[in-house]
C-alpha cells in the first residue's frame, strides 16, 4: 500500500511540475490541481494507511488498527481551500483568454513588463470632466437607445467617452 501511494504521489507531482512548465496557461492551471492532489495524498499518507478501525479513543486507549485521523482532517481542509484557489485560477484563465486573446503564459506575462501606461486625466482638471462627461454620454446613449431615431452625434460622443474611460 505504501509503495503504491508513494509511487502515485511521485507521479502526480512529476506530472504536475511538468504541466506547470508548459507554455499554455490552461496546462499550468491544471498542473496546479494535479500537483495539489499529489501533495494532498502525501499529507494523507502521513497518518498511516492501513487503518482498519474507527479512531475512537476508549478508556483502553486508541485502537491498534486505527489510522491517525488528524492528517485526514488536514487534507479535508486543504482540499476545500484548494477548490477555492482552483476556481480563482480558472477565473483568471478565462479572463486572460478574453482579454489577451490567447493563453500563452509568456505572452501574457510580457504585458506586465511593458512601460507603465500614463494615468487618465483626473476628473477635477478640467471643468468638463471626463468622468461626468462619460456618465452624461452614457445616459444620452441609454436614452437614445430607447428611441429608434437617435442623433448620431450623441452616439459618437458616447463611443469616444467609453474609449476614453477604458484606457
Amino acid at each position: 500500500m505504501e509503495i503504491i501511494v508513494s509511487v502515485t504521489v511521485g507521479l502526480l507531482v512529476a506530472i504536475g511540475i511538468w504541466m506547470l512548465l508548459d507554455r499554455g496557461l490552461l496546462r499550468v492551471v491544471l498542473g496546479i490541481v494535479v500537483l495539489g492532489n499529489g501533495v494532498n495524498l502525501a499529507v494523507f499518507s502521513a497518518g498511516r494507511l492501513d487503518g482498519r478501525a474507527a479512531a475512537f479513543v476508549t478508556e483502553a486507549g486508541a485502537p491498534a488498527l486505527a489510522a491517525n485521523p488528524l492528517p485526514q482532517a488536514l487534507v479535508l481542509t486543504a482540499i476545500v481551500i484548494g477548490f477555492a484557489l482552483f476556481v480563482f485560477a480558472l477565473a483568471v484563465l478565462k479572463r486572460s483568454f478574453e482579454l489577451h486573446g490567447n493563453v500563452e503564459t509568456d505572452r501574457i506575462t510580457a504585458v506586465a513588463e511593458k512601460p507603465a501606461p500614463d494615468l487618465p486625466a483626473p476628473a477635477a482638471a478640467q471643468p468638463a470632466t471626463p468622468a461626468s462627461g462619460a456618465a452624461a454620454a452614457a445616459t444620452t446613449t441609454a436614452t437614445a437607445g430607447t428611441k429608434p431615431a437617435s442623433p448620431p452625434a450623441a452616439l459618437g460622443a458616447g463611443k469616444g467617452a467609453a474609449a476614453g474611460t477604458r484606457t
Partner: peptide
Amino acid sequence: KRRLSGTVVYVVLNLVATMMFL
C-alpha cells in the same frame, strides 16, 4: 490586461509555494 498578467505570475508562484508548505 496589465493587472491580469501580473496576477497570473503572482497566483501561480504563490500557489506553488503554498503547496510546498502544505
